[in-house]
Amino acid sequence: MAAYLHERDGDLETAARLYAEAARLAPDLAERDHLTRQAARLNARLRG
């Protein structure tokens, strides 16, 4: 997943955006929730 690779590379802003986009496209609720939490976690780090 591209978001994970960007996160590993330290590009948290792009990773958060990609996690959020993936969440919008996720086919089921569990995956959507997981990806939304990942985006929120990175956004919190960017703000904090």
Rank of each mutant, 00 (worst) to 15 (best):
A2T: 07
A2G: 09
Y4R: 06
Y4H: 07
Y4T: 06
Y4A: 08
L5Q: 07
H6E: 08
H6S: 09
R8G: 06
R8S: 14
D9Q: 15
G10V: 07
G10M: 11
D11N: 15
D11Y: 11
L12I: 08
L12Q: 11
E13L: 10
E13R: 12
T14E: 10
A15S: 13
A15P: 08
A16P: 05
R17I: 02
L18H: 12
Y19H: 08
Y19M: 03
Y19V: 04
A20F: 04
A22N: 01
A23F: 02
A23N: 06
R24V: 01
R24M: 09
P27F: 12
P27E: 13
L29M: 11
L29E: 07
L29Q: 09
E31V: 00
E31M: 03
D33Y: 01
D33W: 00
D33Q: 08
H34M: 12
H34Y: 13
L35A: 07
L35E: 06
T36R: 02
T36K: 00
R37C: 04
Q38L: 05
Q38H: 04
Q38T: 01
Q38I: 01
A39S: 10
A39E: 03
L42G: 12
L42A: 14
N43P: 03
A44C: 11
R47N: 14
G48V: 14
G48L: 14
G48F: 13
